[in-house]
Design a protein around this nucleic acid. Structure first.
Lengths: 109, 109
DNA sequence: AACATCAATCGTAATATTACAATATAAATT
DNA sequence: AATTTATATTGTAATATTACGATTGATGTT
C-alpha cells in the first residue's frame, strides 16, 4: 500500500491531479507568483526572497519543472525560470472545463 | 523536518495550496467529477463505481470535506454529497486570479 | 430486539513529501 | 589555475499520504 493506483483512473484524472499536486505547496505557489509578477524570467532571487534553504527551493523548482509548469535556461552562472506557456494553457483549459462543469444550485445538502 | 512552514507564507498562498492539495489525487478528482456530473447530490455509489476500498473512499471524502469543497448530509442509511457552492466560487475566483495573472509572452526561455 | 446496510474510524504497512546540511557541479572572475 | 558565485544533487530525519482490513456507529427493516 501507500502508492496511488493511477491505473484505475482516466488520463484526464491523472493529468489534473498531477498538475494540482505540483502546485499543492505554498512555496511552489510563491515561486509561481514571483515568476508571474515579474512577467519576464526570474533568475533565482528566490532563495533570498523566500525563507527556505537553497536546497529546498531547488527541490521545489525541480517539481515544478518535472510537471512542466516552468522551464529554466542557464544564463551564465545563474538560471532563469519562466512559465511554460504550453502547460499553462493546458492548465487553464483543463481547469476551465473542470470548474465550469458545476451548474451551481441543486441545493439539496 | 518534514512539515511545511506555513507561517512564512501569505494566507493566499496557503489557501491556494490547500485547495490544490485537496484535489491533488486522481480519486478525489474522480469523486468531484462524479458529483459534478449528476448535478444533484450523489449518495455514495462511489465505492462501487471507483475501484477503491470503502475505507479509502471514505478517507478521500473526508479530505474533500475538510477542505470545504464538498458537504454531506445524512439521508437515512446513506450520506448524500454535493459541492459546497461557496468554496467552489472561492476556488474559481482564486484560480481565475492566479491563472489569469500570466501575461503570456516574454519568450526568454 | 435482532438483523441488515452504509459510512466513519482505527490501526497499520508501504510509500511520498518536506526540509536542510553537506557536497558536487558548472560557469564566470581574478 | 585558483576562486568565487549560483544551482543541483545526495543523504537523511521528521512527517504526511495512500490504501485496506477490521471494527464501530448509526439508521432502517424484519
Amino acid at each position: 500500500m501507500g502508492l496511488t493506483k493511477t491505473e484505475i483512473f482516466t488520463d484526464e484524472q491523472n493529468l489534473l491531479s498531477t498538475l494540482f499536486k505540483a502546485m499543492a505547496h505554498p512555496a511552489r505557489i510563491a515561486i509561481l507568483q514571483r515568476i508571474l509578477k515579474s512577467n519576464v524570467c526570474i533568475c533565482g532571487d528566490l532563495v533570498s526572497e523566500l525563507g527556505l534553504a537553497q536546497a529546498t527551493i531547488s527541490q521545489h523548482l525541480k517539481e515544478l519543472k518535472t510537471a512542466g509548469i516552468i522551464q529554466g535556461t542557464i544564463e551564465g552562472v545563474s538560471v532563469c525560470y519562466c512559465i511554460n506557456p504550453k502547460t499553462w494553457a493546458l492548465l487553464e483549459e483543463q481547469l476551465g472545463g473542470f470548474l465550469g462543469s458545476y451548474k451551481g444550485e441543486a441545493n439539496c445538502c
